[in-house]
Design a protein around this nucleic acid. Sequence first.
DNA 1: AAACCGATTAACT
DNA 2: GTTAATCGGTTTC
Length: 191
Amino acid sequence: MKVKLNRGFYQDPDVVSCAKALVGKVLCTNVGGQYTSGIITETEAYSGSNDKASHANNGKRTKRNESMYLAGGHAYVYLCYGIHHLFNVVTAPKDQADAVLIRAIEPLEGLEIMLNRRNQKELKKDLFKGPGKVSQALGISLKEDRKDLQGESIWIEDRNINVTDDALKVSARIGIGYAGEDALLPWRFEL
DNA sequence: AAACCGATTAACT
DNA sequence: GTTAATCGGTTTC
């Protein structure tokens, strides 16, 4: 059974619980006429308010992070280190600026296409583990920024994959050492 | 107008 | 374990 997540799912005011809930869901893209999908296996929560690691910390609002202020259920894509596109799911009601970073997937459909995009010939370990790799595999670029996840080019489905709390590994977020105490928050979730 | 830098990755030693 | 690659956005002058 495939069910596209509806607007209500993304309106959860608690970005941490939403990040948890997204693990085990299926991220699908239809970019350049090519359909690909994968099971989300790792996420991180970023809270718009009171989280030094977030681009929207302390109500910061710039051209880059503008899409974080959209209603939950939109995409926030930005360029990191001048090289990698990082894909986030905006959550919570409009203007709360919460977002969940998708850090890893397990390929499901369109494996050949995803391997091609990654310049790989065969499936190897860790090929789709890492936020930059996820975006590359699924064809996500800055063009997908601000996109509505209810649309036809990028969306998330519930396929009844059961993820128990026990199966989830919880840890501190990656690459945000500059965030002081907030770098220690256990807001990273992986299978 | 120029400097500074990052929610990373791949290719090294 | 270390480090180069690379560039739009943000900050600073």
